[in-house]
Design a protein around this nucleic acid. Structure first.
Length: 376
RNA sequence: GGGGGGAUACCAGAGCGGUCAAAUGGGGCAGACUGUAAAUCUGUUGGCGAAGCCUUCGGAGGUUCGAAUCCUCCUCCCCCCA
């Protein structure tokens, strides 16, 4: 993996560059659409490639392991072969499921035992087998197995959890070192900083993670319910410790405003379900603000969804028609909403790159944050 | 011609003397969603308001301390037999 920083902003910590992996080149800062089970919900791969111009998507270890299962993925020749997405793939380790499926798992030093949300069967995930699974999936960027610490967490719990995640990281590292890719493509491993909202724990975790010299580093355990300002403080603190010459990935973030602010702190990679989930549920993000397409106010608005957009659905369909689709529960509404939001997110990070290159990122960002946060 | 069953809020439909401004669905309106157990979930839906008050259960009368609930008549709808 090669990370080339081409420009840094003089008035912020924003930077732009290129991340080269065997499956392709990723222009940073980048937004990565989430495709948990090997599919970005409601969006065709052709749209992902040609309309949204996604450069990398996510997959999830826990979900893919349960279904379709590793024998199918391996027989297919990895996830790229299975779903036809030839560009880069990053897989989350299942660490988020330790958080989101907390009522059906048990954490031990060895790993986490999940009772499957599908059929209740018990499966143990360990730092070692999570690496093995991601080897079979064949993701370009594998994530270390962690516990996404819930918020709020006591300092004691946050520390215990963080230290265990650190021990797991060392085991992930060893397993990564001792295994090789199955399909001939190099696979990076990114460690994940935890430590909840405690600055000294975050600092400790960031230093621990940085000491390994991985290809890139991630910040986890954010946007789990804590106030936005706290999330910003933690992100900034971590960015200041992480090596400058390695890509920084802020996991699970976020709103358009979150992404812009965190690019300003030096984050290079983002992923979030928000564009797809909200798009599916009728909430559209646009350069002028947020629209709930179910609202009655759009009933007679026959203007295009977004006339400034170069996405065909934004220009060819009216707000009134999109509202009609959502009100009727038509799946096309959800598909258009998802497509629109992802296109907007990718447009947003592309604009950010442009302004970093042009040197006016900070002022552009401040103005844009206001615009995209407006409720229309 | 004879016999029977109904009419409840936007719709469907419970309730069958007080705890009923009236269950439950649907529809409407609004909100939430941040490494996806989510094409999901939540709130609200007679009027004005803080408590509270006012007008509602086809229409008109009546019984009762009290009626959506009981009685009488009227209007309309459905079913069965001829």
């Amino acid at each position: 993996m090669k990370f080339i920083i081409s420009n840094t902003d003089s008035k912020s910590n924003a930077r732009c560059g290129e991340l080269h992996v065997d499956s392709g080149v990723i222009h940073t800062p980048i937004f990565m659409p989430v495709g948990t089970v090997g599919s970005v919900k409601g969006v065709h791969f052709r749209e992902l490639r040609e309309d949204i111009k996604a450069e990398i998507i996510l997959g999830n270890t826990y979900h893919l392991y349960l279904r379709p299962g590793m024998e199918v993925i391996q027989q297919a020749g990895g996830l790229h072969q299975f779903n036809g997405w030839t560009k880069p793939i990053l897989t989350d380790s299942g660490g988020f499921q330790v958080f989101s499926l907390n009522h059906r798992r048990k954490i031990t030093e060895n790993g986490v035992k999940f009772s499957s949300h599908i059929d209740g069967s018990v499966h143990e995930f360990t730092p070692e087998n999570v690496i093995d699974i991601q080897r079979i999936i064949g993701s370009d960027i594998m994530m270390a197995f962690d516990e996404c610490t819930p918020y709020p967490a006591t300092e004691e719990y946050a520390q215990t959890s963080m230290q265990r995640t650190h021990r797991w990281l060392a085991r992930c590292y060893n397993q990564w070192q001792e295994t090789i890719p199955l399909y001939g493509k190099y696979q990076s491993l990114f460690p994940i900083i935890q430590g909840s909202t405690y600055p000294h724990l975050r600092r400790q975790s960031a230093e621990f993670v940085a000491s390994f010299d991985f290809d890139g580093n991630a910040i986890g355990g954010v946007s789990v319910g804590e106030p936005t300002e706290l999330m910003y403080e933690i992100t900034e603190l971590c960015c200041n410790i992480l090596p400058k010459d390695k890509p920084r990935y802020l996991m699970g973030v976020g709103t358009p405003a979150n992404i812009l602010e965190c690019i300003g702190m030096g984050i290079d990679m983002f992923d979030c379900v928000m564009p797809t989930r909200n798009g599916r549920n009728a909430v559209l993000f646009t350069r002028n603000g947020i629209m709930n397409m179910r609202n009655e106010k759009w009933k007679h608005d026959f203007s295009p969804i977004d006339e400034e957009s170069n996405l065909y659905v934004d220009r060819e369909h009216s707000k009134a028609y999109l509202r009609h689709l959502f009100i009727n529960g038509e799946m096309l509404g959800s598909m258009i909403g998802s497509l629109h939001n992802l296109h907007f997110y990718l447009w947003l990070v592309k604009e950010a790159r442009k302004h970093i290159e042009e040197g006016d990122f900070a002022s552009w960002k401040n103005e844009m944050v206001k615009k995209v946060s407006t409720r229309l």
